[in-house]
């Protein structure tokens, strides 16, 4: 079960809870902005997560680049620098896009939390 209440860090938990409320209220843009901020804050709070990588088609890619580029896009050049940046192509996001970002950020935070346990 993955819920914001499972997040131990108070700040990240509050951001995910706020994103959840916005998503449920149909405010997709607000939800995605909150989730992008939470994702960036996550790397500030857990700097070792920046160093994590995964293999993709034979290339070693920074794990942070798994972020879904659905209109709130992670600047590729910002990942290797260790200071990720997300730029917004638009302000409006559909419910399914907000849900995708929400699930992604929630899973990433909880996975890190479990790995550090």
């Amino acid at each position: 079960m993955a819920r914001p209440s499972d997040i131990r860090n108070d700040e990240l938990r509050a951001q995910l809870e706020a994103a959840f409320v916005a998503m449920r209220a149909g405010r997709g843009g607000e939800a995605v902005k909150t989730l992008a901020a939470a994702y960036l804050r996550f790397f500030e709070l857990f700097p070792d997560a920046k160093k994590e990588t995964f293999l993709f088609r034979g290339f070693t890619i920074p794990r942070m680049m798994r972020w879904p580029n659905l209109g709130a896009n992670l600047k590729p050049e910002s990942a290797p620098s260790g200071t990720p940046e997300i730029e917004f192509e638009r302000d409006r996001f559909a419910a399914s896009e907000a849900m995708t970002y929400y699930q992604f950020v929630l899973d990433e935070i909880l996975a890190k939390q479990d790995a550090d346990r």
């Binding site: 580029n69 659905l70 209109g71 896009n73 192509e89 559909a94 399914s96 896009e97 995708t100």
Partner: peptide, 10 residues
């Protein structure tokens, strides 16, 4: 590509 999910949903 970056709009396909929003298009699908609408």
């Amino acid at each position: 590509r970056r709009l396909k999910k929003a298009m699908w949903e609408e």
